[in-house]
Design a protein around this nucleic acid. Sequence first.
DNA 1: AGCAAGAGGTCAAAGGTCGC
DNA 2: CGCGACCTTTGACCTCTTGC
Lengths: 372, 372
Amino acid sequence: MVDEICHICNDKSTGKHYGAISCDGCKGFFRRSIRKRYHYQCRFEQNCDVTRNKRNACRACRLQKCVKAGMKSNAIQNERDAIGKRKKASATEKEDLIDQLVAAETLCQQLRSSVIKNTSSLAPYDCGKVKWNYEDARAATLDDIGKSIHQQLVLFIEWAKSLPQFSFLAQADQAALLKGGAAAMMVLGVAYRSICLKMDNTICLANDTLLSKEQAETVGDINGVVTRIISEIVNPMRRMNMDLIEYVALKAILFFNPVVREINDQNSVETARFAFLRSLQRRCTDKALENMEDEMLECRSGKLLLLLPSLQAIAQQLVEDVQLARLFGLVNVDSLMEELILNEIKPSETQVLQTSLSSPMSTIKAEVEVEE
Amino acid sequence: MVDEICHICNDKSTGKHYGAISCDGCKGFFRRSIRKRYHYQCRFEQNCDVTRNKRNACRACRLQKCVKAGMKSNAIQNERDAIGKRKKASATEKEDLIDQLVAAETLCQQLRSSVIKNTSSLAPYDCGKVKWNYEDARAATLDDIGKSIHQQLVLFIEWAKSLPQFSFLAQADQAALLKGGAAAMMVLGVAYRSICLKMDNTICLANDTLLSKEQAETVGDINGVVTRIISEIVNPMRRMNMDLIEYVALKAILFFNPVVREINDQNSVETARFAFLRSLQRRCTDKALENMEDEMLECRSGKLLLLLPSLQAIAQQLVEDVQLARLFGLVNVDSLMEELILNEIKPSETQVLQTSLSSPMSTIKAEVEVEE
DNA sequence: AGCAAGAGGTCAAAGGTCGC
DNA sequence: CGCGACCTTTGACCTCTTGC
């Protein structure tokens, strides 16, 4: 109370520091000086004024006055551990994983643009979600559904191929992951893309056509797959305001499924899955800290993961729908769909999948055209 | 007297704290770390010196050494009443949730014992898992499968009714949750029960009969549901050494599904789900801290949640199998199974479900006998 | 009643952060 | 790149509860 004045520079003090009543400025200055073992030299007569306004003019005299005022260098402790707090969290190694996924996503977005440019105009995108004001899209036809599924499958393969965790696997395991995850990955993609749509009974397919519940029911969606996608996936995603990073992480976690049918190297897949899981959890806790929504966000990663059971169930139903639709000749099932969605086994020389896996990415546009 | 030295940092100790001889610094550090559930990360090789002067340089290593020295996180008590504090006992509230679930589980185990006592001897149980040395059980017949499913369904309803979060819901929502979750809950129960079986191609049904893959295939398990349960659920559970608390929490999270078909009061269900999710995550971080398996356990709750997508898919396949089996007259489907597993809608006056929901628990034994 | 242990809590003075 | 206003963590020093 009485001693509110810094004994070094007469600024307002913030208490005792290193043995002297001082301000935060002199406190910090003294610590930095001692820590870095600075040896300053006065360019004048060693008697410079050290006051609030002039204290930065001569470091030698300021340090000297710190000592005179009673600051002890042995009160300076060793460096401590970092205390990750304020805004910009330091970029860590784990960021790399996320960055890699975002890069893979971007790549696929670009590929997609080049592939579907023949169909009308491209929808405006925002972080992989179509923009909320994009409503002039045309409604999807049965043909659009087939085409968009095919497109998503092709992009799905390219996406996977761009991930090192995937390409290190044996080709048989690569095929197993692709087959086991295709349907769910498609549903996840469609759901995320549809987050920003204004109409809450509609989803946006991969070729930017819109499919409403009602429409879907007229073209064979007897089990209400579209309805389920909206109520069980899109709406929860909306409510929790899911972002791109969370989407790509969830996608990777879903994809690297160590218990998928026919997998051999479970360990590598599991390792990859858990690495992505850790990234997601890190990112979620970081986000929670930033927004200070402590209680609400502390289990955000859990909430995200809890989208997956529904997703899995819906994907399975979708597969059954496609099987049924084919049975009734409603939909054109190409060989990629047969292999990835319907899990039909083909003689290996005719497998489109195997061809895709071993071909470089540049050929994919051609491949799409061949298929059509 | 001999032990005046802090077992963590070699500073002067002030006695035993949380199970280890330690100084006030390490005491305070440990308490703060556990209370705030900090997750530190070593920036080096996890082998930093933890001595008087360097103890603040790496919190990860310091905390690790606290645990190694014998400090127990369960010795940390709840925050005491601070006069001006507003927060109540949110810490104990979560313990209560888990306790409540364990109580519900125990209750069902007891009910089960009384219900199946007519069939041979009871298997020795350990935390809801049959003991590893229980191998003299008889193999399950087709009839056993039907009976065990029925039993599980009855117990499932009683389990749910014993949870306040469930009984506060409207009856229609109660029915929706039961219908939507029955199959998956059954699979989860069977899987957990089978964790300790020695034979890795066998599961243990609810009436303590054993069902092997091969056997299952001869009685209509064309889709390999048993194989999938083992490889996708039981084995992962084994590998991560899942315990009872994790099981009951996961079960509750699975059950309180806010996006289940026909649900009205999504919010209440979601609130319940997230409360259980928080409990699970809390418990997992606690366990990670205790065992100091930092890296491996930090995403344990995520790993547990990732059992659910497979579970959901298997449950769905199980339902289809049962439908098929009934079609071929292979299995006796009673009305409870029709309502809960096959989701068939009955005129409400004949609904067994509705009867179960409104009857007190004491009548369940009679009910089981009526059904047979 | 008294007292030693070991829980809990407090807050001055260390530390670190990061826009400028 | 250092400065310094502002925030977090530490630990010496208390109080409170429990069991003997």
